[in-house]
Amino acid sequence: MSREILKIVSLNKAFGRVQAAADINLSLQEGVLTSIIGPNGAGKSTLINILSGSIPPDSGRIYFLGTDITRLPVHRRVKLGLCRSFQLVNIFPELTVFENILLPALAAADRTRHLLRAIRRETAVRAQVAQLLERIGLQHAADTVASALSHGDQRVLEVGVALAAKPKLLFLDEPTAGMNPVERVRVLENIRELSHSKQTTFVLVEHDMDIVFSLSDRVIVLHHGEVIGDGTTDAVKNDPRVREVYLGQEVPA
């Protein structure tokens, strides 16, 4: 049994009358690739926003590797090892691809406080960045300004920036949206590999059921801010409540 990486205790969040998170209790295990699915407006984005620190919950507690992080600001959570990527491209548009990755990598290595040290001298971190770029297939574009990349490449870079923070737990919000098939395969391969090597535990928010069912060890289904299904892919596929929510939508059996 692997250890518990994230524990969510009776989490609630309402926006006016809309209950975006209704008494959510979850425990995520290290190394278990988990997907969160649900119809539009099910509360997936809200949940990620709460867990990564962008929105405070109304009530409830969040524990990351045993530490209570409910009230910690975003950057402290990232320092502990909890990071996320974004659904919309959210990179540094005027920095080069290399610098985009370098910034979080330097932060992860605790080297951003150096005022007068030339960034060229940070050879160890630079080597890691080069390695990561190769891994995600952007090494040829290292010196390109990020805004000049194609949309698909920007999406890949988005995932790369999140990975560069060396998170122990990483939320990926629709990581492959807007990618072409080649990029998609590459990114999914990366996720699979990193997940197997247990460096990073992934939580995916996805619409594409093919990806969800081919990749995930565990699937959590949200509906109206409530967890209505939770288990292995097969268990969830055959859950009557889940089928009911997705009625009329295609569920690959």
Partner: peptide, 10 residues
Amino acid sequence: HSPFGLVLAG
């Protein structure tokens, strides 16, 4: 041109 400077640019 330091790591600090890169963060500021970011």
